[in-house]
């Protein structure tokens, strides 16, 4: 398939797990751990889909999403938000900011895989 996913996440174990099983499915997986430079990274690698954590060093995932949606180059890029907080409030906020999908940690690998696939096909 050769689809390109950019994983913006700071927890090394989670990065490793996602990278492992997506790579096996044939995804090209890029990773980025810093919040402050995340928007620039999305613009640089222009992935097919972005997996975005909320709690990141230096900048929150919500702010990053906002910028992505404001930039014409990235506003069409599907974004899947991952959060470990999982409160309704966060879900609503993400929807409001224009996220394509939302998942709460911990997630099932199969669900994530399925979600990313549907985002790309949409």
């Amino acid at each position: 398939m050769g689809q390109h996913v950019l994983l913006i996440e700071d927890e090394p174990n989670i990065i490793e797990a996602i990278r492992f099983f997506l790579s096996r499915d044939g995804w090209k997986v890029s990773c980025h751990s810093d919040g402050a430079s995340a928007v620039a990274e999305v613009a640089r690698v222009s992935p097919d889909v972005v997996v975005l954590d909320v709690m990141l060093p230096n900048r929150s995932g919500f702010d990053i999403l906002k910028d992505l949606r404001a930039d014409p180059a990235t506003q069409a890029t599907p974004v899947l938000m991952l959060t470990a907080k999982g409160q309704t409030k966060d879900r609503e906020r993400a929807a409001h900011l224009g996220t394509s999908a939302f998942m709460t940690k911990p997630f099932s690998n199969a669900d994530l895989r399925e979600m990313l696939r549907s985002l790309i096909q949409a």
């Binding site: 174990n13 989670i14 797990a17 409160q87 709460t104 911990p106 690998n109 199969a110």
Partner: peptide
């Protein structure tokens, strides 16, 4: 609570992700 949630879910995410890998891959 929000913090606790985050602190508990983060290791749990790794655990679940790797255990699923171990089980299904």
């Amino acid at each position: 609570l929000s913090q606790i949630s985050h602190e508990l879910r983060t290791p749990m995410t790794s655990i679940r992700a790797f255990s699923e890998i171990l089980m299904s891959e």
